[in-house]
């Protein structure tokens, strides 16, 4: 009985996760922007991860030609 009820309610995760995305999007932007340098903050690249220190460079789409990122890539 209880397991059947549980199974019937699993679909609720779909709206919950969708709503979680809605709540997380602005927080993601806040957090990611907080880790960026002033030169890196640009509306065009607001969804990209911060470049950070050269050893953990992750972003490949950033088009800003900063000297540090140039030397790495």
């Amino acid at each position: 009985m209880t397991s059947k009820l549980r199974l019937g309610k699993t679909w609720l995760y779909i709206p919950l996760i969708l709503m979680a995305v809605f709540y997380l999007l602005p927080m993601y932007v806040m957090l990611v922007t907080g880790f960026k340098s002033f030169a890196e903050i640009d509306l065009k690249t607001m969804w990209n991860l911060p470049k950070g220190s050269p050893s953990i460079t992750t972003s490949k789409r950033g088009k800003t030609s900063r000297p540090t990122s140039k030397t790495v890539s």
Binding site: K9, L12, Y13, P15, L16, A20
Partner: peptide, 27 residues
């Protein structure tokens, strides 16, 4: 509307309720 729907969904005793609750309350 949104608050009521979220509360009803969280009230169903799903796993991870605490996580979603804090997440929705965080803003």
């Amino acid at each position: 509307l949104l608050g009521f729907l979220l509360a009803v969904m969280l009230d169903q005793g799903l796993k991870g309720e605490g996580f979603f609750r804090s997440l929705f309350l965080f803003p």
